[in-house]
Amino acid sequence: MSRPILDIEKIAIAFGGLKAVQDFTLRLPTGGLYGLIGPNGAGKTTVFNLLTGVYTPQAGTIAVDGTRVEGTRPHEIAAQGLSRTFQNIRLFGLLSVVDNVMLGCHVRGRHGLAGTILHSPRHVAQERAMRRRAMELLSLFDLASAAGEQAKNLSYGDQRRVEICRALATEPKVLLLDEPAAGMNPQEKKELQALIRSLRDRFGVSILLIEHDMGVVMDICERITVLDYGETIAEGTPTEIQRNPKVIEAYLGTEAA
C-alpha cells in the first residue's frame, strides 16, 4: 500500500481533566473519502482542530503527504496542503464572495511589498490569476453570479459552498469538511453528495468529513471512524459500522439504560 496522504497516529489532547481525544489514529489514502461520526460532544471537531493546528496535540503524530505537521502553526499546515471548512461557517462576512475565494489563493502566492505597491508584472499577473481561479471555482459551484455580493448576504447553503470554494482555492491535498450538510434541505443534501464526490475527481483531493446526517455519510464515505467520549469505538465500511453493536449503543443507548 502506498503512503497515506494523511497519516494520523495516536493523537491525544486533554483539557484539564477532560480527555477530549485519546489515541486517535486514521490513515487516509490518496483519493480517499472517509467519514468521522459520533454523538454530540464526541470530539470530532476537536480532531479537526488538532489536525489544522488550532490545538497542538499533547501526544501522537500527524503527517500530510509524508511531512510531519503536528506542533506547527495553522498557516504552515495550510501551506502543507491541509484545508478545511467550519461547522459554524466562518466566511469573511464583509468581504465579497470572490474576495473570500481569492483569499484562499493567498497561501500559494508570492508577496513582496515593492511589487504590491508598484504593481510589478508578477504582482499584476498573480492578482489576475487569483481572480480567474476564484471565478473558475465559483462557476463550478454555480456561484459566479454572486461573486460581487458580500458573503454575509448569501443563503446558508450558498455560504457553505463558498467555504468549500475557499478551501479548494488553497490547492489542498486533503480537505476536511466539518458538517457540510448541516442546515440543508433534502434536495440540497442530494446535490451536496454529488458535489463532494466530484471534488475528489476534479481536484484530486482526498476528503475527510464530519457529518451528522447518516444518510449522507453512509452513502458517500468509503470508510467511517466512530468517536464517542474522545475514544475511537469503531472503524470500518459503512455496512460494518451500521451493524456494529457498540455504535448502536453509543447512538441509541443500551436497553437497560
Binding site: 495553522p74 498557516h75 484545508s83 478545511r84 483569499l103 493567498h106
Partner: peptide, 25 residues
C-alpha cells in the same frame, strides 16, 4: 486591493478562518 490587503482584512473578519486558509496572522 492586493492579496496582502485581503489577508489583512480577513484577519479583521475572522482570525481563525484566516489562519486555516494559510494567512500568517
Amino acid at each position: 486591493r492586493s492579496s496582502e490587503g485581503r489577508a489583512m482584512l480577513s484577519i479583521r473578519e475572522d482570525e481563525i478562518a484566516a489562519q486555516a486558509m494559510g494567512v500568517n496572522i
